[in-house]
Write a protein that binds this DNA or RNA. Structure first.
Lengths: 328, 328
DNA sequence: CTTGCCCGGGAAATCGATTTCTGGCACGCT
DNA sequence: AGCGTGCCAGAAATCGATTTCCCGGGCAAG
């Protein structure tokens, strides 16, 4: 790997001039030409490490998410990656497994690596952003409690309302809700949307026993759905507030034939290969990829020096693809 | 962010001694104690950038894969991430979209960032590893043509045989195969397994028109399956050689009722939320996560200085979960 | 008692870029 | 003609750690 000194020597100029040519400062055309020729000749790629040390930040962005195997975060990561790459940044993937210790370890690493910025889907209610020492951060999907930072989220209340409305339109009257852990804002807000929709339709707050908290995972959704199916009086609709629990609920429904068909289920969040999802399920899409893109755009702006007050962007692209129930 | 000089000053020693304490070289206990206290006091985290510059490699590993939204690569990434993290390395995610230009861009970046090593799932038949300048590389999933490097793959021929055998056991006699692009080794090998199994069962090579090449993507699988379903003489089984095309084929089968049930489909590779996959499909699991773990282990060994000749590891954990056909 | 070796720690070089600082040259204004 | 004023490029400082290199002191062997 050639260094800037070898390029300088070959071109007969100083290293400073090589740097200037490569970074856009004005340099006489003949020198610049010699430098470019020399760089080409030696197949020179500047050491990003040395550059990062001097510039005090690298061209890396940390993407800290709870679970890379969840298609929601995968799509989000894709949005981040595409946007970052277009701006010349690479993305470091940090899987926290919903563990706040791992999260803060990764935030320390991001600082120690002098990464340009961090996009964080917080694992818990509170995140320790102290170790970042002022480096740009954008929160995505969930907003960390007690920090006034840029945030990009989906309209969870609206999504909850839309999912519930889809079941109400089908004439369902006793609609339960399986949501995530108490205290997590997406979990609470989606349940609030469910409550809102039912109040709007019936004029009464829903029976509190119809609200179930699980852990946002497949098994949790399956188990809670199983319990709801066995409970009396019978429910005729279930709103499930994320994709994994939704898949679990569908598994439960499929395993208990005759109880409640897929048409009684509404899911917030997308399942991969929608072609394989039982027909009739109501799906309220979340703009996962767009969340990632917008978060990356905000972060890139901060990296570029934008010092305006923190923004809270809410994407409401949720009104989308409801799968129609099977005709007849 | 405190520097090693501040720690040295506070502890009343030289920066060299601080470095020695933190990196394990023998230092008198009283000095070491003072250094540790000072580091604690200042919440000192060494700059990885400076360290990388001097050490000539960072604690980052590049994971170059074609598509982060494919659950196979997601699981693989998870395996890499877990193994790398346990050894103190972080993973940089590089999505190539099957584009060899993007692949070589990322390889250049890996070298410029002085990353510790690269795990590469090659996008095409040939990969340009030249820019890596001798940095450790491990190929995973596919083996790059013309490079003698460590490789970790699944037993594709065996997987092809197993998938075909599952359909033969169900009494299917005219079994087609939808595989990936010609020239890609996983694509060819899995088709070879299909051919082998049919020859073993019938004593004849299969009708060449039963072998279809698609692009390893959902739409390709759907379209080829659609064509096969309309072709005459009728096929009564289809082996599909990856997960995305498998999902596409299932979509085609579902959309054309009466043609061929899900029991006529065998898929190599896992679909997420198997609970949602139509019952009866034969699935031959690929050890995606284990591929990632093994690749990471091999790479870590190389980073650690292992200079033995390149190894080719073939994982055959494929014998796994066939979903039983619906009884009756 | 002297020579030599070992060991621990400080001073300084090093990694490779960027960025100030500085000097020389050309040009314009009075 | 003399004195700024820019502008361009080279010299050198800088980023923050690691790693030689070297020196002084302690201890063992001759």
């Amino acid at each position: 790997m050639a260094t800037i000194y070898e390029v300088a020597a070959l071109a007969g100029v100083s290293p400073a001039t090589v740097s200037r040519v490569l970074n856009g400062t004005r340099v006489a055309e003949d020198l610049a030409g010699r430098v470019r020729a020399a760089a080409e000749e030696l197949d020179f790629t500047p050491s990003r490490t040395a550059r990062s040390l001097r510039r005090r930040h690298s061209e890396l962005i940390a993407l800290v998410i709870p679970d890379i195997e969840n298609p929601f975060f995968t799509a989000l990561a894709r949005g981040v990656e595409d946007t970052a790459r277009a701006a010349g940044y690479s993305v470091v993937l940090c899987n926290t497994d919903e563990d706040t210790d791992r999260e803060s370890t990764y935030l320390r690493i991001a600082a120690a690596e002098q990464m340009a910025g961090v996009i964080l889907a917080p694992a818990g209610e509170t995140s320790d952003l102290g170790s970042l020492a002022g480096r740009p951060v954008v929160a995505v999907d969930r907003s960390p409690h007690g920090h006034d930072i840029d945030t990009v989220t989906a309209d969870s209340i609206g999504a909850g309302r839309a999912a519930t409305a889809a079941l109400l339109e089908r004439g369902r009257t006793r609609i339960a809700c399986i949501t995530g852990p108490a205290g997590v804002d997406t979990s609470e807000d989606r349940a609030q949307g469910w409550r809102d929709a039912i109040e709007a339709a019936t004029g009464r707050t829903p029976d509190p026993s119809l609200l179930r908290h699980a852990d946002f995972r497949f098994d949790g959704g399956r188990e809670e759905a199983g319990r709801l199916l066995r409970s009396l009086p019978r429910v005729d609709g279930i709103v499930v507030t994320n994709n994994l629990m939704g898949a679990g609920a569908l598994a439960a429904v499929t395993a208990a034939p005759g109880s409640l068909s897929a048409e009684g289920i509404a899911i917030i969040g997308d399942l991969p290969y929608s072609a394989l999802v039982p027909a009739g399920v109501a799906i309220v899409s979340l703009p996962a990829r767009e969340l990632g893109e917008e978060a990356a755009r905000l972060l890139l702006a901060r990296i570029g020096g934008d010092a305006s007050p923190p923004r809270r962007v809410v994407l409401d692209g949720v009104a989308s693809s409801l799968r129609a129930p099977i005709p007849g």
